[in-house]
Simulated scan of single mutants.
Amino acid sequence: MTAPTSRAQSGWKHDPPPDRAWKGRPGRARSAIAAEQDRAAGGRHRRSVDLGKGRFARASVELKVLPDTRRIRAYLRWSDGGKSPARYLGQVEHDTRAANLAEGWKMAWEKGLLTEEPPAEGSWASSPSVRAVMRANRSKDTRPELRLRSLLHKQGLRYRVAARPLPELRRTADLIFAKPRVAVFVDGCFWHGCPEHLRESHKNAEFWRAKIEGNQARDTETDRLLREAGWTVVRVWEHEDSDVAAARVIGAVRGLPTAHHEPD
């Protein structure tokens, strides 16, 4: 892996740094911004500031350029009771925003500003890594869901989000197309036991195996009940190519043959 290029190597010592070194893309969703910070920090569980008395805040690294010095400065910011404290971390000199964010998080840890938030009392997650996986696998408005919705909307399809295909059945689909009776589920690799990407936890292995197998059994039952009620079920893995997934959904809505999970 090639090491990030420094400012001195890249030749912008006497010029303003390029936007790619510190600016984020405009118009990004909040989920995309949070994911960028998670990657740079090494996981969401490594972004916590201890506020005392059992309280924690989720921090972010902010990059700024001072016009008079032409240097990129990194700051750690978080929220606390309506206020937004900030701590200066230092100057960063890499050619990419990702590398400079990672450097900022490293500085924050070296300065002792961060901590790994302990699990809540009674939490199933026995380690920061497991908590990170659980938090990353949100149940609604995940990045794969948003991307799929966007592609379907561009094709003129209209749908309901996070709704029950059968009101009397407590099973919620990520998307439903009422008239053609198509229910779409976007399944997370962790919670639904993706055969390609599931990494079994070494701690509480039996518990997590039972939990995931229970989810799979529930998925199978949901599919059966919906099919018996005249619905077509399309299941999409979160890792699946969005264009391929959208094509399967469009095919189902328009009456073409479709299937459950399909390999990439």
Rank of each mutant, 00 (worst) to 15 (best):
T2H: 13
R7S: 10
Q9V: 08
W12F: 11
P16G: 08
D19H: 00
K23F: 04
G24C: 03
P26K: 08
R28M: 13
R28G: 01
R28V: 13
R30M: 08
A34F: 04
A34N: 09
E36A: 14
Q37S: 07
D38T: 07
G42P: 08
S48K: 03
A59M: 02
A59L: 08
S60E: 12
L63R: 08
D68G: 02
T69Y: 06
R71D: 10
I72Y: 00
R73G: 12
Y75Q: 07
W78K: 06
S79P: 00
S79R: 05
G81I: 04
Q91V: 13
D95M: 03
D95F: 00
A98N: 06
A99E: 09
L101R: 09
A102Y: 02
A102R: 07
E103L: 06
G104E: 04
W105H: 08
W105L: 03
K106N: 12
W109Q: 09
G112D: 12
L113G: 03
L114H: 09
E116H: 05
E116R: 07
E116L: 09
P118D: 02
A120K: 02
G122M: 10
A125L: 02
S126W: 04
V133K: 09
V133T: 15
M134P: 00
N137H: 13
S139L: 07
D141K: 13
D141H: 14
L151G: 03
L151E: 15
Q155C: 11
R158G: 08
R158C: 07
R160S: 14
V161F: 12
P165L: 09
P167M: 07
P167G: 10
L169I: 14
T172L: 14
I176F: 13
I176P: 00
A178T: 15
K179P: 05
V182E: 07
W191K: 12
W191V: 07
C194P: 07
E196L: 13
R199M: 10
R199T: 07
E200N: 05
S201G: 07
H202C: 04
N204E: 15
N204I: 03
A205M: 05
E206T: 15
E206H: 08
E206G: 01
W208N: 06
W208S: 06
A210Y: 03
K211T: 11
N215L: 14
D219W: 01
D223P: 02
V233C: 15
V234G: 03
R235N: 06
R235F: 01
W237A: 12
D241R: 10
R248Q: 11
G251S: 02
V253C: 05
R254A: 08
G255N: 01
L256H: 08
P257S: 05
P257M: 05
T258Q: 05
A259H: 14
H260I: 00
E262A: 10
P263H: 05
